[in-house]
């Protein structure tokens, strides 16, 4: 099971490293969104610092839609999705592998975007441990929920418009939790960062279990 998940994750990540769609398109897109936020909020450095955590996570969620869509588009491009079904790999492994690959990409995105926020919005990090843990947990949560919904809409003609509608309301708790944790880590608000980390971890665990259990039923439909 883990061997197959590892195989799928390795394949997805290798394709992303080769094609560089993430680095050449998704990351620049995310940085652009940050810049637009700065324009929208005026040149008020104080406001940007205050809202930096929320803006950061809204940007990550928007970019994650692209990464999730891409992960499934690669399989659909030339019939590989059918072959994955035919390979006999356990759906749980496929789910785990794809979610892990998406999570790794999101973490890379978070690191690059985090640097962007520090530079552009002039924030300073007070608690590195919290920052790292919250970043990882949120990536896991978005990746598990995203993989579940990505598979659900994969193969549908309207997947580009349907994925945001389905996924964004569901990951709202991640936005709330991760924003609060980052507010604490950036020292802009005295939130209880570690408690929020618990919510993020719980979210990732629930969607991990749920996704693994229902992925088979979704894949059945071929």
């Amino acid at each position: 099971m883990f061997r197959d998940a590892w195989l799928i994750a390795g394949k997805d990540l290798r394709i992303e490293m080769r094609s560089r769609v993430g680095l050449n398109q998704i990351v620049p897109f995310a940085v652009t969104v940050l810049v637009l936020f700065a324009f929208a909020l005026d040149t008020d450095q104080e406001a940007l610092r205050t809202y930096a955590p929320g803006l950061f996570w809204v940007t990550v969620l928007l970019a994650s839609l692209l990464a999730i869509g891409r992960s499934f588009a690669v399989d659909l491009a030339d019939g590989a999705a059918d072959r994955l079904l035919l390979s006999g790999i356990d759906p749980i492994s496929v789910f785990g592998g794809k979610a892990a690959a998406i999570a790794v990409q999101l973490v890379v995105l978070e690191v690059l975007l985090g640097a962007g926020v520090v530079l552009l919005f002039d924030v300073t990090v007070h608690r590195y441990g919290l920052l790292v843990c919250a970043g990882l947990a949120a990536a896991a949560g978005v990746a598990t929920a995203g993989t579940l919904y990505g598979a659900l809409v994969a193969g549908l003609g309207v997947r580009e418009t349907l994925l945001p509608l389905l996924l964004l309301p569901v990951v709202a708790p991640v936005l709330i939790g991760a924003t609060r944790a980052f507010q604490d880590a950036f020292g802009v608000a005295g939130a209880e960062g570690w408690a929020w980390l618990g919510l993020l971890a719980g979210f990732a665990a629930i969607y991990g279990v749920f996704g693994a259990l229902s992925y088979g039923a979704l894949l059945e439909e071929a």
Partner: peptide, 27 residues
């Protein structure tokens, strides 16, 4: 079973060896 359809089931960004290797390990 093996189904050879009109679509190749290959990943464009991987090499031939990587593609065949991936499907071999999957099986």
């Amino acid at each position: 079973v093996a189904l050879l359809g009109h679509r190749t089931g290959l990943y464009d960004d991987l090499t031939v060896a990587e593609n065949v290797g991936f499907w071999a390990r999957a099986a």
